[in-house]
Amino acid sequence: MTLTADLYFSFRSPYSYLSVGRYRAMSEKFNLTLALRPVYPLAIRQPDFFEKNHPNWLSYTIRDMMRVAQFHDIPFGAPRPDPIVQNPATREIAAEQPYIRRVTRMGQAAARKGRGIAFAHEAGQLIWGGQPDWHEGDHLARALERAGLDAGEIEAEVKDQAEELDAEIADNQDALEKSGHWGVPTLVFEGEPFFGQDRIEMAQWRMEQRGLTRR
């Protein structure tokens, strides 16, 4: 029996990146099908969110995500550039967001073909693994190909079906909130949400209770 679950994911979320490779490995090891459900980050959906955080939030988050990467031996570095276009002095989020919209639409197009998790992992390694200018040249095209996709086909969908892809991405966000959570990464299995990169083992434990077996 093959179990199924949904992974809600943002390409701007460091914790999403720190989880997706481990979830990909889980799906390859066990009889498990994971569907990527990409969402736009809080910077797009709620631009003032980060202004309301405690002053210690940013410094702690940076420290924590770096040690998570070290603990799991995951390549990690600040995105170059940030997927979100933002004024570094005022923190104002720009109206035009070409980077995050393009890569998120790619993720949704990949998800349509059942290769979303693989692409999210490959693209995540570009964005968060230290690849400079990850948004230029053929970096994303090669990530699509490594994920088993036709890069030209996906690029055409992103260009020609932007509105349809955005509607699907909005549906992902609605489904995430209906599951009982709102943030990423969140794995939803049989209606139960598991939020955070530190809930992967617990999600596996629950699946094992439901009959998860090795391939």
Rank of each mutant, 00 (worst) to 15 (best):
A118Q: 09
A120C: 08
T90V: 09
Q108Y: 12
E96D: 12
I100G: 01
R102N: 09
N87F: 13
Q108K: 14
R80W: 10
P88A: 05
G116Y: 08
I84D: 13
E96P: 01
K113Y: 06
A109S: 03
P88D: 03
F119A: 02
G77F: 13
Q108D: 15
R101D: 07
N87I: 04
R80D: 15
R91C: 06
I100M: 05
A94N: 03
Q108S: 08
G107D: 08
F76T: 07
R101Y: 10
I100A: 03
R102K: 11
A109R: 01
E96A: 09
P98C: 06
D82S: 15
A94H: 00
A94F: 09
T90E: 02
A95G: 14
A109K: 01
M106L: 01
Q97I: 07
A94Y: 04
I93W: 12
P83A: 05
N87T: 06
R91L: 00
N87V: 08
I84V: 15
A111C: 07
T104M: 03
F76Y: 15
M106P: 00
R91M: 15
P83R: 10
P98W: 11
P79H: 02
E96H: 03
I100W: 12
G107L: 08
Q108E: 14
V85E: 02
I117H: 04
R101G: 12
R80A: 14
I117V: 15
A95V: 05
Q108P: 09
A120W: 08
P83F: 06
P83M: 12
F76M: 11
I93E: 11
E92Y: 04
A111G: 00
N87R: 14
V103L: 08
I93Y: 06
A118H: 05
A111F: 09
R105Q: 04
I84M: 15
G107S: 07
V103Q: 13
R112Y: 08
D82Q: 11
I117S: 02
I84K: 02
G114A: 14
A95Y: 05
F76W: 13
A78H: 15
G114D: 04
